[in-house]
């Protein structure tokens, strides 16, 4: 209790003295469970393609950035209520999400989604397919009318295939590349062209910040550093 009172007092004090400036620190929200896009490394820090990309974008846009880890389920609501200023979590640009938040231009091109299963001859239409909740892959399976089971984290979708709960998992190919070939998991030949590239998500009212990130992404596309980074982390095809 004492600690609580102390921290509250400290917070009030800081709130009173610090000068308010719109975006002195830009907080970047990510999931931290989607290698190679974003994950927590051995040291307990956020790492991956988007960590490197985000840090580079902030340097180019001359912003001070800070990383925040947030559950996928509540990643959009927490952006809207201002707990962080941008989502950079392998989020595909879709019309549905565009209604709620704004996206920068895509930093990876649209790539097909892939299936991973224990058996290459799996019958997708009559099988059970795993996908992460609120992803383009989950809505794709639902639209097809196939049997879908949803999981909160990407790791769980693959675990479901490993232990036989699901027959196959549908996810971004780059993510499944990291698990295919282990524990008898194989990638199917069939791919699904869904999603419109991956971009950063921002509040609709935050046009300034969006413009800054957009400019930085264009810059990185132009001088080829973005392609180098994509190749390094094997997250997507080249621009």
């Amino acid at each position: 209790m004492k600690k609580l009172v102390l921290t509250t007092a400290a917070m009030a004090l800081m709130a009173g003295t610090a000068l308010a400036d719109g975006h002195a620190v830009v907080r970047l929200g990510t999931e931290g469970a989607y290698a190679p896009w974003n994950f927590v490394n051995d040291a307990g820090e956020i790492d991956g393609f988007e960590r490197e990309l985000g840090d580079e974008l902030c340097t180019r846009a001359e912003l001070t950035c800070e990383w925040v880890k947030n559950d996928w389920d509540s990643i959009i609501p927490n952006l809207l209520s201002g707990n962080y200023d941008a989502i950079i979590a392998g989020m595909s640009i879709t019309a549905e999400r565009e209604e709620v938040i704004d996206f920068t231009q895509a930093y990876t091109p649209p790539d097909p989604s892939a299936y991973v299963a224990l058996d290459a001859s799996v019958d997708l239409e009559n099988g059970v397919i795993a996908a992460q909740t609120s992803t383009i892959q989950a809505s794709f399976i639902a639209d097809k009318g196939w049997t879908l089971i949803e999981f909160a984290s990407p790791e769980d979708t693959v675990a479901a295939v490993r232990n036989g709960e699901a027959d196959a998992v549908l996810a971004d190919k780059s993510f499944l590349d990291t698990v295919a070939g282990t524990d008898g998991l194989v990638m199917l030949e069939r791919m699904e062209a869904i999603g419109g590239g991956v971009g950063m998500g921002l509040r609709e009212s935050d046009a300034d910040l969006r413009a800054k990130f957009d400019a930085a992404i264009s810059d990185m596309k132009a001088d080829g550093t973005l392609n180098t980074m994509i190749a390094k982390w094997e997250v997507a095809s080249q621009w």
Binding site: M11, M14, A15, A18, L19, A20, D21, G22, H23, A24, V25, R27, G82, D85, R203, S205
Partner: peptide
């Protein structure tokens, strides 16, 4: 959206 000074905790 609230003004910067009202954010809790402050962005900074």
């Amino acid at each position: 959206i609230v003004c910067g000074a009202a954010k809790l905790p402050l962005n900074t």
